[in-house]
Design a protein around this nucleic acid. Structure first.
Length: 450
RNA sequence: GGCGCCGUGGCGGAGUGGCUACGCAGCGGCCUGCAAAGCCGUUUACUCCGGUUCGAAUCCGGACGGCGCCUCCA
């Protein structure tokens, strides 16, 4: 099995991916907090992780992808209160939207999507372990993690504890032993409508601990890849790593993999900036093929520009692939083109370099287009499947009877030399979403890319 | 201020110490009734200043610029 290398945030370098002794690979990625519809920026890690899973499976691994859903959180309380609905109802509604919105990406579901609210027991026992070991303490029903008790704290985000801002003004600051400490459990407060019991009192879990618990519950400690946006490196992932390290004496994950932010204008796209584009609107507008093509067009770690022009470019790439696929035949691809297929997968083995892989795929396409003799589609389908774009190589839908009639009329007009009428009919077909392409084999109707 | 990332041709975007991806757009040509698609050709890039080297856009140092994190954020 060929070596796969991925960039690890913690070590700051490419590290070889080492599967479990049984050959399996576990991936945990932080999912959304469900207090609103997700935006395209949130879709990037979803797409990256889904495609990474496909690639690793293609390489022969048994992959388990876990993406949690945070359904208990201050933001959910705030949003629900503002709307005058129970927070659990809002979380359920937005959770359902999240599922539907990401389903529309057509990449399938993660293998497991745990909810914080359904993981309370493991969370409580993990906190209890930290208290018992002296890495956490109770104050008025709150539980805080003792950051300075972890000598390796800061190793993930590679920053020194003493250089950190002292988190002044944050709620609970006066109760903490150290401003750096963070909440594992928050005592129930007036107006919060979800609450659970724990040995130290009623309340609900903090944000970071839920991920440590869910990841461990689904994948065990020491799984292969922990992913998420790079804005989560600190404090979220730093805290997750610290909690598990102190409670279990082991690192939560081998490789910490972080994707870059989507840029909208000059800034990152974020709800806090207010420049978000809802995922479902983008999908309605341009389709999942173009969005996925856009995402794989840049390396996952780089920040990525997102605007209409990028989307149109992605759409043009999609059209090029589909046009090329249309000219292929079923069956094996030529052996002389094998090296291009190989280059595609080799690029992915080097830190999941999708743009380099795409370049190899376009080289393959150019070569296929050049050939006079029929070219088998197998290689292209194999590459596209890893990108979740295999539909581009499938036979398109047939035009309806009405379009067929218009096409016939155009052929009659052409035969009669009435090109003005022929061109008018061609324009009319375009209005129906079909493009006419004449070839030596006769005219063909091709669906216009969204 | 601290930590990190980045600065490539008209645009987007990979990568390598010497062989100069890929896509989009433009222009010219072939093909076509005209187009579209495809093919061929085409303006040849690597922020700046030092250094290392036979040779650097690629390594090192510095400057300038941009972005992210340090507070909720994918």
């Amino acid at each position: 099995m060929a070596a796969i290398r991925l960039y690890d945030t913690r070590s700051g370098e490419l590290r070889q991916l080492v599967a479990s002794p049984d050959g399996s690979i576990g991936i945990y990625a932080c999912g959304p907090t469900v207090y609103g519809r997700i935006h395209v920026g949130n879709a990037r890690p979803f797409v990256v992780n889904s495609l990474l899973k496909r690639f690793l499976a293609h390489e022969g691994h048994d992959v388990t992808l876990v993406v949690n859903i945070t359904d208990v959180n201050d933001k959910i309380y705030d949003a629900a209160r503002a709307m005058g609905v129970p927070s659990a109802d809002l979380a359920a509604e937005m959770g359902a939207h999240y599922i539907a919105d990401t389903d529309a990406l057509g990449l399938g579901r993660p293998d497991s999507e745990p909810l914080a609210s359904e993981t309370i027991e493991p969370i409580v026992s993990l906190i209890a372990e930290l208290i018992e070991r002296g890495h956490a303490y109770v104050v008025d029903g709150d539980v805080y993690f003792r950051v300075r008790s972890d000598p390796q704290y800061g190793s993930l985000s590679r920053r020194s504890i003493d250089a950190m801002n002292q988190g002044e003004g944050v709620e609970g600051a006066e109760r903490k032993e150290d401003p750096l400490d963070f909440a594992l459990w928050k005592a129930h407060k007036e107006g919060e409508d979800t609450v659970w019991s724990a040995p130290w009192g009623r309340g609900r879990p903090g944000w970071h601990i839920e991920c440590s618990a869910m990841a461990e519950q689904k994948l065990g400690v020491g799984f292969q890849i922990h992913g998420g946006g790079n804005d989560l490196v600190f404090p979220h992932h730093e805290n997750e790593a610290a909690q598990t390290r102190m409670a279990r004496d082991r690192e939560l994950a081998q490789i910490w993999m972080h994707n870059g932010m989507l840029q909208f204008g000059e800034e990152k796209m974020a709800k806090s900036v207010g420049n978000v584009m809802p995922l479902h609107e983008v999908l309605d507008d341009v389709g999942r093929n173009a969005l996925i093509m856009l995402f794989v067009g840049a390396h996952y770690r780089q920040p990525m520009a997102f605007d209409d022009m990028r989307l149109m470019e992605a759409l043009a790439r999609v059209a090029r692939v589909r046009d090329a696929a249309r000219g292929l035949v079923d069956g094996e691809s030529p052996a002389e083109m094998r090296h291009l297929r190989d280059a595609f997968f080799e690029a992915l083995r080097q830190d999941f370099n999708t743009p380099a892989a795409l370049a190899a795929m376009f080289d393959w396409i150019k070569e296929a287009n050049k050939r006079e003799e029929p070219v088998g589609r197998a290689d292209l389908v194999e590459m596209l499947a890893v990108l979740g774009l295999q539909n581009l190589a499938e036979h398109g839908s047939e035009a309806g009877a009405e379009e067929q009639e218009l096409l016939d009329q155009r052929e009659d007009a052409r035969a009669a030399g009435d090109y003005a009428e022929a061109d008018r009919l061609r324009d009319e077909l375009r209005g129906h979403g079909w493009e006419v392409r004449d070839s030596s084999a006769g005219p063909e109707l091709v669906r216009v890319e969204q």
